[in-house]
Each structure stands twice: as C-alpha cells, then as structure tokens.
Design a protein around this nucleic acid. Structure first.
Lengths: 126, 126
DNA sequence: TAAACAATTAAACAATCGTTTAATTGTTAT
DNA sequence: ATAACAATTAAACGATTGTTTAATTGTTTA
C-alpha cells in the first residue's frame, strides 16, 4: 500500500490496489465515449431496435449522410454495431454481444430514472 | 409517422415516435460524457468507495491538484459527487442517488464483461 | 497579523471532436 | 460503357476538452 500525503484513517487495505490500474479505466472510457455525443446515443438506440440503411438513418436523424457515416464508423470500430451490404445499401444494426446488451440496459435504466415512465416509449410498453 | 426515403418494410408503428426526441438523448449524453475520460471514471470509482480530500486524490491518481479540481468540478455539476469542507480540506464522495447507483453498476458490469473475474478487485470479493 | 497549507480559478496551449463540403468508391440498371 | 444512386473518405473549419503554470481564495495555526 502506497502511503498517502494525508492520513484520514480510512482505506481498508484491500481497496488500495484498485486505485492503480489506470489502463482498465481507459478501456472503459473508450466505451463510454461513444455515448458522449447525443446523436451517437440516439443512433445506437435506433440500431438496437431496427436494421437500417444510411439514407434512412440520415432522414431519421435529420443529418447529412457523411455525418451519419462518421458516427457509424466510430460505433462500428468500438464493436457496438455491425454493417452488411445488400446491393447498393449497407444495413446497420446493434451488434449481438453482452457489452451491447449491458449498454442498452444502462441507457434504458438511466432514461427511466431521469424521465420516469416516459421518454423511451416503445421499451416501456413491453 | 414520417415517411422514410427507402421503404424496407419494417418499423412497427410504435417504434417510429421514438426516433424524434433528440433532447432526451442529449441529456443522457451529458451523463455519459463524464466517463468519456479515463481519469474521470477512475476518480468517480474511487469516490464510490471512499471519501477523500483533493491532495490524496492527486496522489492516488498521480495528477496535479488543479487537474483533479477540474474533474471534480465536472463530476459535481453533473450531480455525481458531493463535497463537504472540513477545515482546510474538502472531502469528496459519490452522491447518494439512483443515477449514481446505476452508473456504478454499469461500470462494474462492463468491467466484468471486458475483464472477467478481475480488474475491479474489491467489488468481486463481496 | 503573518505564514503555511488546501483548494479553486484563470489564462494559455495542444489535442480531439463533430460537422460541412467536395471528391471518391462501390454497386446496379440502362 | 454510362448514368444513377448509396456510401465512404478527405480536407477544412470552428468548438470543445484536458492539462499546465501561475495567481487567487479559504482556512488554520503560530
């Protein structure tokens, strides 16, 4: 255990080692960073509930397709969505992984807490 | 229901309204943004498990106190931590709210998924 | 009061981020 | 091949972010 400048008489021994693994938190932050932009959460949330092409996503989000492409690329390289080409179009949807499920549930829970009974309508109905 | 450029024959009617409430996702993104920085997640995680002064947090995180103060200010204005002055020092800890509990659990779950049985040691022992 | 320590604030800086516009690649149909 | 459409990439831009250094505000003690 590293000695701290001030001794406030707390810190059970087994908590100290926790404070040293910075890389792990960096890894987590790369996940959370995906949702630090409102448009990107919304895009992810849409793709949790349907599979769509870029043009339609642009229309839903009221954004240009390069902008959508840019966000899709980030979500994809974070492993949160997948894309499959079908003819001229590429269909995107949320990846089927435990991390994606956990993030979906976190969004739903935080939504429910900050806007009880309300903002994410389709989820509540089930 | 707004008509989309391409009709892929999906989208049950009750999913459509969901795609229009952008402000709600913006609100969520302000929460997630707090954790888009590795140092800030780590700081929050520490403060979920103990109450500490800025000097000790600086030592734990190996960062300057202005840098720590800066992150504390953000976490505080997001409602995630509280601070109380005691003499020359100010002690910070995680706020006691449902949102904080949900975020704590999300961090723990994502940690467990990406590093099974391992990285956040003290939490696993209970 | 003055000195010492804790914490915050201010100013400056490089780095990152989200969006736009324009150009490019990939695919299908004529 | 050519034209039309979907999607991505590239370059540029303003805006935001995290850190540093220096100055300032609070509080205690000598």
């Amino acid at each position: 255990m590293t000695k701290l400048p001030h001794d406030h008489g707390e810190h059970p021994e087994d908590i100290i080692p926790l404070f040293e693994n910075g890389e792990h938190f960096l890894m987590l932050s790369e996940l959370f960073r995906q949702f630090s932009d409102g448009n990107r959460i919304r895009l992810f949330w849409i793709l949790c509930h349907c599979e769509e092409c870029v043009i339609n996503l642009s229309a839903m989000m009221n954004m240009s397709s390069p902008a959508i492409s840019h966000h899709l690329k980030q979500l994809k390289s974070a492993g949160l969505i997948t894309g499959r080409r079908n003819g001229k179009e590429v269909y995107y949807r949320a990846a089927d992984t435990p991390v994606v499920k956990a993030l979906h549930d976190a969004i739903r829970e935080l939504s429910e807490l900050s806007c009880p009974g309300g903002c994410l309508i389709p989820e509540e109905k089930k």
